[in-house]
Design a protein around this nucleic acid. Structure first.
Lengths: 203, 203, 203, 203
DNA sequence: ACACACGGGACGGCCCGTTCGT
DNA sequence: ACGAACGGGCCGTCCCGTGTGT
């Protein structure tokens, strides 16, 4: 919200954000207690409420911080870019608390907000944008609608990541997303393109 | 938990379950307050704590009650049964509070429980069971693995339903699940079977 | 607000009211802390918030409880009744915490309420009513206006009681009110009536 | 407390005093927050705590500043001076935040101080001083005691001002004080003097 | 040198899930 | 089955030092 001037302040702010993210990720918004965040960040209430006016604002800031850290990779095939983004995000889910918390907060929304489609829309638009690019370059099968397909992908991704969290503590998210692509791509990509697409993480 | 003998008691118990489900569905486990459940069920604290020992037990009972109410339809094609179950569940999501609450509680878990794969496992096993049947009858393409496919389907279903809730208040869940099947079935069903499968709701 | 059913509950409620009154009287509304009220009443937070939904409601209830305990004495002269009421109230100020707190809360208002003339109006109307009676019976000098005189009396009473509190811890309130009447009555009462009025407390 | 030499410092100090007074006047001592004072004065915490060591000291300084700004007018009749002072103060109550805040802080005392008769005593002594002058010049009726009469006047004034605040936001304070004098003077002033006294504000 | 951004914690009120006596 | 009471925990605010950068 505010832009801290001093150096120590910036570090403190980031420290809080990380601690908050880790608690939000584990407990969800409602069950997360300010007290635990303070404990993990090893700071005091005064420090927290200097940087963030409320628990809700803190949650929003977590989401915001994550969004700013996201970048889309570039490939010669738009479809390859899309696949790569999803795999990268899936991989990050294992270590990046900010991302994990953001997703939990987004999915759980309605507990700290009336409702807000915005966070989902961000992902959906990113996806449909890439799909439109792909479509323009003839990478897609003719009947594929970029918008509805984007929503399908985002929905599936969300659910698979959730399932992976419960079943294996997200250890196999990447594999699950790869499986998703393996099932979806044949119905999406143009035949010539399909062969050139890589869905392994090494790339 | 217990099996109440008296008739009035059973009705009261069910009343509480419905009220609790509606609150859990709207607010989530943590934000749901006993007080509001009491209000909606129009009962007193004493009554509630006679039937359920704690809020947590109440949540578990909601999930349990829903599971008991679930039945799988019978079709000549096992795959058709599977498709039909998912569409039916999707449809129920619009009206059945017990189901809605169950899903919310399952998805949000970690806020009122260390973690528990059981609720997901129920759905997954139902799915993989039907897939194994289909496999035995030659309805599937040869390379399809019933177990991992079941998890893929359940994951995608969960996520799509979540997305539908945020974007359209679950008004288009059914359509989204239909889209999912339209994308997945060609990679799952044997060619001859694919033509005979119906994914419209009227059936 | 609510009407407690059980006997113990009524006692508890009254206990709380007294404790609250004593703290409000000493510290004022804002400086009064719930914790201190709990301590004095020797009850727990739960008990208090069962009977009163908030600190503000508690304050209102204190005022209300006092109002219900007030009664106007009967005399052959309306003016004598008025004098007597004021003296009685003044006397009660030394022991009756409910009354003391009520006055402090009324005077301080604006700290726990936008503003509300109602508490003052109660006293003013009681006074002007008696003055109108007196007027109808010819006890007043012709030029005396019951309404404005009532407000004058209530205002002076309020201030004198306040002053007495600061200077002598309310030990001489009664005397100060007697002095007030000694100064005011000659300008209010008809000559014949004036002689028959007693302003000593013994009556 | 301190006497700042620099000019800018003096203005800042006064600015703070005014802002503090306005907040104290509206909210009372306890409900007044340093933060709001800072906001209204458009200064920072550092500046405030440079001029005043604490919130309590600030309150005392407000009272003190007001006292220093008070002057008594001169008339040929001491009684007329007294009347005039009270009317002037009443009039100032409508605009002078310093005065308003002082009175609120004085009346509410006990919330930020054990208790202190001093502020009242200042007014009382001013009054009794003028009454003694009047007595020496034979302006008073023989039985009038300057001390107790002074306390009566101050008490009534305080209460009437309070009442006026609640009922009409102090719009009719002056009139109420005029009414007070109209009722009290016949019992205080010597007959010859009474006729020469003016209680209208124009003088 | 010095204003002030930053951090420190103690309470503030109150809501919560729960248990007891009847 | 119920009204009454329990007490821990919640988030937020408050007044105020202390370190920090200009």
């Amino acid at each position: 919200m505010t832009a801290p001037k001093q150096d120590r302040a910036r570090r403190t702010r980031h420290l809080i954000l990380l601690a908050a993210a880790s608690v939000f990720d584990e407990k969800g918004y409602q069950a997360a207690s300010i007290a635990e965040i303070l404990e993990r960040a090893e700071i005091t209430k005064g420090a927290l409420y200097f940087h963030f006016p409320s628990k809700e604002a803190l949650a929003h800031s977590v989401i915001q911080a994550q969004r700013e850290a996201m970048t889309a990779p570039q490939h010669d095939l738009a479809l390859q870019s899309l696949v790569q983004v999803t795999l990268k995000v899936a991989q990050q889910l294992k270590d990046d608390v900010l991302l994990r918390a953001s997703i939990r907060l987004t999915v759980e929304q309605g507990s700290f907000q009336p409702i807000d489609a915005a966070p989902y829309m961000g992902w959906i638009e990113l996806t449909s944008g890439l799909l439109r690019d792909a479509s323009a370059r003839g990478e897609l099968l003719p009947h594929v609608d970029p918008d509805s397909t984007a929503e399908l992908i985002i929905g599936c991704f969300t659910g698979l990541q959730l399932l992976s969290q419960v079943l294996t503590e997200r250890n196999d998210v990447v594999k699950r997303i790869q499986d998703l692509w393996a099932s979806l791509l044949p119905g999406i990509a143009a035949p010539g393109v399909l062969m050139r697409l890589r869905i392994d993480i090494s790339q």
